[in-house]
Design a protein around this nucleic acid. Structure first.
Lengths: 171, 171
DNA sequence: CCAACATACATGAACGTTCAACTATTCCGC
DNA sequence: GCGGAATAGTTGAACGTTCATGTATGTTGG
């Protein structure tokens, strides 16, 4: 839909995008697809896992004792609890994490990255980082890195400061 | 393509992210999740379709005769052919598009947005655009819009100018 | 204390995407 | 023209995500 002009004007309740915003938005969509597809393919090829799983392992690897409660892990990794639960089942099957009950709060579970999981992550990391670099950071100037960070943080604080229950943390 | 054997990934041949790049990357991931989730939920709630389908309908609506070849549509909408084929089947079931053989090239099919499909799109557009605005453009300054556009285009030209067969067009 | 509610997580069905075939048509060189 | 390769599109299976629901545990007000 052409969002800059309309056939039947109903100006009053719709705030349309300017032409400039429109092109920016489409560029953003294309860039976002490019980055996502690139990384997803690379990880699938080199480590046989989706990026979500990689992030889950990565977040666990940084936690004390390589261990986090499922709910915390979900927030840090940016997944829903349901998604994490399914993912954890697969990761546990693969032997890359373990789950055990949380003693203080028996509703909860603690997920721990196994040595094997850590190894998988260590092997997967270099080519993943290389992909991130080549698809994003090699393409933009240091100044643009700063600008991009500011933009991302502005978007995040704008949404998380108003309505959302702080669901999108930086990780 | 790097054909040098990388048997044991050591520090020296891996180009890791600087701390600054690291935080930028995580902010970007979080922002990208926020935007995607926001729009996906809004479209699912208000129009009962995923964003991919919305984009397909939108791209068709801008085409002459509201018609495009499947392969062109796939490129413009940023989907794989297979994805588009599946989506087109569902959209055809819903009565929002039609497909007919291309007479010049009988391998191809022409997809056309129906009046009903156009109506669905027109009804879905305002709240979608409102979401885009509120989640992104309301959060950043006009100058940052310019910066973001430049960044996106830099990323796109960087990748599409080297290896990729111009798969990520702006739409 | 205990009923009502909230939280933590799991589960299964529905759906969308990906990947690897597969069919049908066109293009190209000889 | 004819055989082989390339192109356009479809299909089905495998997989991941989402949504609604279910179960167990914790919390709280009367």
């Amino acid at each position: 839909m052409d969002t800059t002009t309309r056939t039947a004007p109903t100006e009053q309740d719709a705030r349309w995008l300017t032409e400039h915003e429109q092109t920016t938005w489409r560029s953003f969509l294309a860039m976002q697809r490019l980055i996502r597809d690139t990384l997803e393919r690379q990880l699938q090829r080199d480590a046989a896992m989706p990026m979500t799983y990689y992030i889950i392992l990565a977040m666990l690897s940084e936690a004390p004792q390589r261990t986090l409660r499922m709910s915390e892990l979900a927030v840090i990794a940016g997944t829903s609890q349901s998604q994490l639960s399914h993912a954890a089942s697969r990761l546990e099957e693969s032997g890359w994490i373990t789950r055990r009950r949380c003693e203080d709060d028996k509703r909860g579970y603690l997920a721990t990255l196994t040595d094997e999981g850590f190894d998988v992550l260590r092997k997967a990391a270099p080519s993943h980082v290389e992909s991130v670099r080549s698809v994003l950071f090699d393409a933009i100037s240091p100044q643009q890195v700063d600008q991009l960070r500011d933009i991302c943080e502005a978007v995040l604080t704008h949404s998380c400061g108003e309505e959302s229950p702080m669901r999108y943390i930086v990780g």
